[in-house]
């Protein structure tokens, strides 16, 4: 399964890079397009019961049916309607991605801030721990934790989160160690600000923009990791609608030319990843106060 999902991830990264160049001078537009894509998926997730024509967890026609008028995205090997599964799967995608990324951010950012600001021995010890987690291949680590915790939405989200904590930590810590030697931090010390105030009002806002980008990447990545876990039976229990699971399953049939089983879940993943990225990149450019000066 790693083949196709890895490829899709690569492609989405390439597209992201291209987009960044294309929209360089119109960050506002980029954010708007990203926002529209996300809004589209949010609407789909909320109104799933009204949009989907069939029950996503029950066969609704012959198996392996190519796209037709009644099943616009075809059916899978069990005769489930792919369109309906995608519509319902939007909920799962959002839930897993948001919860996992939020857990990772909530743990990784404060630890990175504090350790980066304090520095010294604490820094060396915590960084070593984080680096050893980071050095572990992400999916394998997630598999190990998921296997330990068992299936279920929160457990999956948690196992994915553990993989991303070091990402936040590393980026924040390295940013903090640059920011803390800035003159405005010296200035804050000179006016008598407490350490907590310095970290909160002077350091944190200046490292925040870099987390927005990681946030978007992790949202996208977590959808892929979740797909991998689901495929191994460690994720959401089938037949709960889930894009990653459908994509992984569809891959088995690609050699029979049953392309629709891969194409539509794949498109869904790519577009939502794009939506997150464009929105985040656009916001980053918009909010970063120094970008305007770097001409």
């Amino acid at each position: 399964m790693d083949g196709s999902s890895g490829e899709i991830l690569m492609i989405s990264k390439e597209i992201r890079k291209g987009l960044r160049g294309l929209f360089k001078d119109s960050s506002g537009l980029m954010a708007v397009i990203g926002f529209l894509i996300l809004i589209f998926y949010v609407v789909v997730a909320i109104f799933a019961p009204f949009i989907s024509p069939y029950n996503p967890t029950q066969p609704s026609g012959p198996s392996l049916l190519p796209p037709t008028v009644s099943h616009i995205m075809g059916t899978d090997n069990l005769g489930y309607d792919i369109f309906s599964r995608l519509v319902w799967g939007t909920r799962m995608a959002f839930a897993i991605a948001l919860i996992a990324t939020a857990i990772a951010a909530v743990v990784g950012i404060p630890v990175g801030l504090l350790v980066g600001y304090i520095g010294g021995k604490t820094d060396r010890v915590v960084t070593m721990i984080m680096d050893s987690v980071y050095a572990f291949p992400g999916l394998i680590l997630a598999i190990a934790i998921a296997a330990m915790l068992g299936p279920g939405l929160l457990n999956i989200a948690f196992s994915i989160a553990v993989v991303y904590i070091p990402t936040y930590y590393r980026v924040i810590r390295s940013q903090v160690s640059t920011v803390k030697s800035e003159l405005y931090v010296d200035g804050a010390r000179a006016i008598g600000a407490k350490t907590s105030t310095i970290i909160g009002s002077y350091v944190f806002p200046n490292v925040l923009p870099s987390t927005i980008v990681i946030f978007s990447m992790n949202l996208a990545d977590s959808i892929m990791t979740e797909a991998g876990l689901s495929f191994l039976g460690l994720g959401i229990a089938p037949p709960t609608p889930d894009w990653g699971y459908d994509l992984a399953k569809g891959q088995q049939f690609i050699l029979n030319n049953d392309w629709w089983m891969v194409l539509f879940p794949g498109l869904a993943i790519i577009t939502i990843v794009l939506g997150f990225s464009m929105f985040a990149e656009g916001l980053d450019e918009y909010f970063n106060p120094n970008i305007g000066e770097k001409r």
């Binding site: 003159l183 405005y184 804050a188 000179a190 009002s201 806002p205």
Partner: peptide, 16 residues
Amino acid sequence: FQMIFQDPMASLNPYM
């Protein structure tokens, strides 16, 4: 007691 620094571009928090 206070201090004024050399580089006015760097001595103000860009987000404040």
